[in-house]
Simulated scan of single mutants.
Amino acid sequence: MPQNFRLRFEGARAAREMRAGGARGLLLGAEHVLGISNDKVPLDEGFLQSTGTASVDEADMNAMVSYDGPYAVRQHEELEWRHAPGREAKYLENALNSSRTEVQALIAAQLRRALR
């Protein structure tokens, strides 16, 4: 017995949903990197760690993780400075590099979710 199916593709809606899913995935990925970085950021009184933020520019589809402390860049770049055990220079760069696979998986999961 033949069966007939009708499919209506709503391209604009699909594009909006994919973009929203991508933005959610980027934010989740940025928050993941921030969490790992917070575990490695040099710590004395906790001020630098408290300035960490994760955000997404949905227009450009870029995620950002940043620390806003006045000495954040110097702490990040000074490889010769001593830090407490488990804390390190390059805390943000190393967090991003070590979590690429997890960030990609978070973004992919949100894109799949948007396609449902």
Rank of each mutant, 00 (worst) to 15 (best):
E102R: 15
S55W: 04
N94W: 01
A30C: 11
R113G: 14
D44Q: 12
F9M: 13
N94E: 06
R112V: 08
A59G: 07
L34Q: 14
R116F: 02
G21R: 06
L34S: 11
L28I: 11
V56I: 08
Y67C: 03
Y71V: 07
L115H: 04
N38G: 07
E80C: 00
E102K: 14
E78C: 01
G21E: 04
F9A: 15
Y71R: 07
Q104V: 12
A54D: 04
Y67Q: 05
Q110F: 10
V65R: 06
G21Q: 05
E45G: 14
H76C: 05
R113A: 15
L106Y: 07
A14Y: 09
A95L: 06
A20D: 09
E77I: 01
S55D: 11
R116E: 13
A89H: 13
D44R: 14
R19E: 12
G86R: 03
H76F: 05
K90G: 01
V65I: 15
S55P: 00
K40C: 08
E77A: 03
R82A: 11
A30G: 06
A20E: 11
R116T: 13
K90E: 07
A63R: 00
E31R: 15
E77W: 02
E78T: 08
Y91K: 00
A15F: 03
E10A: 10
A72C: 07
G46E: 11
F9V: 13
A63L: 02
L27E: 06
G25M: 03
R8H: 10
F9N: 13
R116P: 08
G35M: 09
R82S: 12
M64K: 11
R74I: 11
A105Y: 00
R6L: 03
E17Q: 15
P42M: 07
R100L: 14
H76A: 06
L96D: 00
R24I: 00
G46K: 09
A105E: 12
D44G: 11
G86D: 01
H83Y: 01
E77S: 03
R13W: 01
S66N: 12
Y67N: 07
Y71N: 09
S99V: 09
G52H: 08
R74W: 12
A20F: 06
D39P: 00
G29Q: 06
V103D: 01
M61Y: 02
V65G: 02
F5M: 13
P70L: 02
A23H: 05
R113N: 13
R112Y: 07
I36A: 12
G25P: 00
A114V: 01
N38F: 00
L7D: 03
L34K: 15
G69F: 03
R113W: 02
L26K: 05
H32Q: 12
S50N: 09
V41Q: 06
R112D: 10
N97G: 12
H32M: 10
G69E: 08
Q75E: 06
D39S: 15
L27H: 09
P85L: 04
R19Q: 12
Q49D: 11
P85E: 03
S98T: 14
